[in-house]
């Protein structure tokens, strides 16, 4: 871009004196020798005057009772109906903003897991797949760089925390329903007795890995969250290899104890969840940039 074009783009702001001193001087110097920019400046002056006149004559006066109405809304406790409506509205908005590929991807991976389980009659394969699907999809819920949700955070009384929890709720519910249905199908193929163990086999680790993935994605990023969550889950199986088991019997026992205690897994999940809440609550605006443009 040459100097003329650069200066020409500054003319509206020169006209309103919204340039720094150096830029003002640059424009002034250029204007002395450039008739095109002189004409454009005259054009912008006309536009400026026209806007001033239009605004002064056409803007109605603001009703005096508006502040009272705002105050009433601030101190008025919302009714259950209003709370429900607001929740539904956020739910709907967030459902549209969640990455679309999550839905078919989770379904396909679980379907593959289901088919392999049936073909090879090897149920543990499905147990291993289910929590991973959930952890992966929840880890990509939060995109700290370009998240359209942040626009919502900026313009409406919705916090980053609320948005995050609602997304967690939507995706975790979706994954749970999917795994529940596949578990039910597996139990129909084998026997109804398989259903309860199946359910408990995946529920605790799925909850744990989902919350771990979400926490890490908020603190670090989605890629690291998925990698660490997968590694943690892999640790459950890696100790079954005799050589590794022999290397560290203590770690093997701890891993076995952890993964075989659903109650402990739920407690650790709850602790992680509290850490996540505190982290976001302490610095709600941390990742919201008002100066950086959003891309969709």
């Amino acid at each position: 871009m040459n100097n003329h074009e650069k200066i020409n783009q500054l003319l509206p702001f020169y006209n309103t004196q919204q340039l720094d001193q150096k830029q003002m001087q640059e424009v002034q110097t250029h204007l002395k020798t450039c008739s095109t920019c002189q004409q454009d400046l005259e054009f912008w002056q006309t536009i400026n005057q026209s806007i001033q006149v239009e605004n002064t004559t056409s803007t109605p006066s603001l009703s005096p009772e508006i502040f009272t109405q705002i105050s009433a809304k601030i101190y008025q406790r919302p009714t259950i109906q209003e709370k429900f409506n607001r929740f539904s509205q956020i739910l709907k908005t967030q459902f549209q903003l969640i990455r679309k590929e999550i839905w078919p991807a989770s379904f396909l991976v679980l379907l593959i897991g289901f088919v392999i389980t049936v073909m090879f009659e090897f149920e543990p394969f499905f147990y291993a797949i289910a929590p991973l699907v959930s952890a992966a999809s929840i880890s990509v819920l939060y995109n700290r760089q370009n998240d359209p949700a942040f626009e919502l955070v900026l313009s409406t009384p919705v916090s980053q925390l609320q948005i995050l929890l609602i997304r967690l709720f939507i995706v975790f519910s979706y994954n749970s329903i999917l795994v529940f249905l596949f578990s039910a199908s597996l139990s129909l193929i084998y026997s109804t007795k398989v259903f309860s163990p199946l359910l408990f086999e995946w529920l605790a680790p799925m909850t744990f890995l989902s919350i771990l993935g979400m926490t890490l994605s908020v603190i670090l990023n989605s890629e690291n969250a998925i990698f660490i969550s997968y590694s943690v889950w892999l640790s459950k199986y890696i100790f079954h290899i005799d050589e590794i088991k022999d290397l560290s019997t203590g770690l093997y026992k701890a891993s076995q104890f952890f993964w075989n205690s659903p109650q402990l897994i739920f407690v650790v999940s709850a602790v992680l969840f509290i850490i996540l809440l505190i982290y976001i609550k302490q610095d709600p605006g941390k990742n919201i940039s008002t100066t950086k443009p959003l891309t969709f």
Partner: peptide, 23 residues
Amino acid sequence: AEDVLQETFLTIWQKANTYRGEG
């Protein structure tokens, strides 16, 4: 426009803690 103004000030009230002091 008055409805928007109301919403604006409700948002300001609820989100004043997110203003980072830039600009």
